[in-house]
Nucleic acid binder design. Structure first.
Length: 532
DNA sequence: GCCATCACG
DNA sequence: ACGTACGTGATGGCA
């Protein structure tokens, strides 16, 4: 077989998950050659998959690559038409939808269901279907490559492509969970939750009250003498100090969420090896951030993280960026005050408070520092006076809307280049991240315009870090979690020191490709469980 | 199917 | 009582 630079590949499997499915049919084509099919990975295909000089193209590459790796084949150098489409801003990501939109081809996907592939015999229909998928993946690949080039997004796509193996690692590795201990705590929580429910019903004299119904809570508390505009936690917080029953409702809510969302469901995702495996997406948000579902490992309550552990003989290394979004903001705006703060390593929340309250940093009170902190967070989200006011109430700080607006104005006076940047972003036809992604302005709200370049650029820095990490990680080390500004790996005890250096180095150097001339700081810790 | 709510960054 | 902080995912209630 003649050596060529690119191979288009598609596999058909008996299940959607690599852990419990087998490969039934493999279709592939080298360059412009005819598509061929086979049922097993022969030596020739094994070599093609492994060869770093041959680019393998898949639609939704993580799926095929995970199956291959799970079955013992090495896969290097691959590209993904689904991710390409995402970089182009597409939301409909099926091969069918994309070939239709970009090539005008109407695909018949009636064979797609894995149920059609569990039977023993393969018919000509099966073979034609797989061939058709590869044919269209090839056409789509060149069409999307053109489109990416036309829109100046090749570099952005290449960054995603280099980071893509991290998704494969996350899904293959999973993360070990101490399930016995988890269930013990869960049982205790369930009992406590029932107890609280009994108490609330007792106090309100309503034995049938459904505490999960906001509507019923409003009615019940109205009868009790409390008028609520909503039953959201910050509304309830207003009455929490004066009414025990409101305090109990809040406690019930928190506990119930933990139990039903993160507790009961967890066993569904537990694999035989004691590890939880979620579904990870490289581009999960329009900003470019990753996402994870089933279970949402990026949103595990901090109180539950201790149950995610390292295997015996291993350690977890947890690393996270310090203030990464504000550093991105400093890099985009080039605001001298903010940059100086970072260069001098000062307490940034106190620094902002010193600007807003016009006093030396050492004299900033605890409450003033909290205001500074809220403003710093808020600025990344596209702050409004209303938002500041609402946020500060959570910390027991009650200010008028006028005062809140004054804080906002003082903040922007203290950081004049941020003000300039915001004015520019609000007027712009389109928004650009530091890494070169572009968002059409028309579709964006004012707050999105202010947030997207920050969140998007920080995500790009993390992708650069992951791209470095997948090249430098040892085969025995496991990437187990990525949470926006945090990376967790699991390594053997003997490798801890080396792995710590490699991880830290990748994270700093990756982010530095996006954030220019601002110090990047990574905090790192070693533990038996997932902790910050 | 949408809304309200809440978990994370 | 709302126009009013960014991005996700999951749940139960309710129409």
């Amino acid at each position: 077989m003649e050596k060529s630079k690119v191979v288009f590949t598609d596999i058909e499997t008996t299940s959607l998950h690599f852990m419990n499915g087998v490969i039934r049919l493999i279709a592939f084509a080298e360059g412009n050659s005819e598509v061929v099919t086979q049922t097993v990975v022969d030596d020739e295909l094994r070599e093609i998959l492994k060869n770093k000089d041959i680019l393998k193209v898949f639609h939704n590459a993580k799926f095929d690559v995970e199956f291959f790796i799970h079955n013992g084949y090495e896969v290097n150098n691959y590209s993904c038409t689904l991710v390409m489409a995402q970089v182009l801003g597409e939301k409909e990501l099926s091969l069918k939808a994309l070939t239709n939109k970009y090539l005008g081809i109407e695909m018949n996907k009636s064979m797609q269901d894995s149920k059609n592939w569990s039977d023993d015999k393969l018919t000509q229909e099966h073979i034609d279907y797989a061939i058709n998928d590869v044919t269209n993946t090839r056409l789509l690949y060149y069409r999307l490559l053109d489109e990416l080039a036309k829109r100046n997004l090749l570099e952005t796509y290449e960054r995603e492509r280099r980071a893509l193996p991290s998704i494969v690692m996350l899904e293959l590795n999973g993360i070990k969970m101490n399930f016995d201990q988890w269930n013990k705590v869960l049982d205790y929580d369930r009992e406590l939750c029932d107890e609280i429910q009994r108490d609330v019903r007792g106090i309100l004299g309503l034995e049938e009250l459904n505490l999960n119904s906001p509507k019923q809570i409003v009615e019940a508390l109205y009868e009790y003498g409390i008028k609520l505009y909503s039953t959201s936690d910050d509304e309830l917080a207003k009455y929490s100090d004066d009414h025990e029953v409101v305090k109990l409702i809040r406690k019930y809510r928190k506990l119930k969420t933990k139990i039903r969302t993160y507790g009961d469901k967890m066993k569904t995702f537990l694999c035989e090896d004691g590890r939880i495996r979620g579904s990870w997406w490289l581009i999960g948000a329009t900003s470019g951030r990753m996402s994870c579902s089933n279970p949402p490992l990026q949103a595990m309550p901090s109180s539950s993280k201790e149950f995610f552990v390292a295997e015996k003989g291993n350690k977890l290394i947890c690393a996270d960026y310090s203030q990464v979004e504000l550093r991105v903001l400093a890099s985009i705006s080039r605001d001298e005050t903010l940059i100086n703060y970072f260069n001098e390593g000062v307490d940034l929340h106190a620094g902002t408070a010193s600007l807003v309250f016009n006093k030396p940093m050492e004299e900033v009170t605890k409450e003033e520092r909290q205001v500074g902190k809220s403003l710093n967070f808020g600025i990344c989200y596209g702050i409004t006076a209303y938002g500041i006011q609402k946020n500060l109430r959570k910390f027991g700080i009650d200010i008028s809307l006028e005062e809140s607006e004054r804080y906002r104005v003082e903040f922007l006076k203290g950081y004049p280049k941020i003000k300039e940047l915001q004015d520019k972003l609000l007027r712009a036809n389109g928004i650009m991240s530091l890494g070169g992604r572009y968002w059409e302005g028309r579709a964006l709200s004012m707050t999105q315009r202010l947030n997207i370049p920050i969140q998007g650029s920080a995500a790009e820095g993390l992708k650069e870090a992951l791209a470095l990490l997948v090249c430098n990680i040892k085969s025995s080390w496991k990437l187990v979690a990525v949470v926006h500004d945090e990376v967790v790996i699991e390594v053997g005890e003997d490798d801890v020191e080396e792995a710590k250096d490699v991880l830290k180095c990748c994270m700093i150097n990756g982010m530095k490709k996006i954030i220019k001339n601002i110090p990047v700081i990574v905090d790192i810790s070693i533990s038996n469980n997932w902790c910050k």
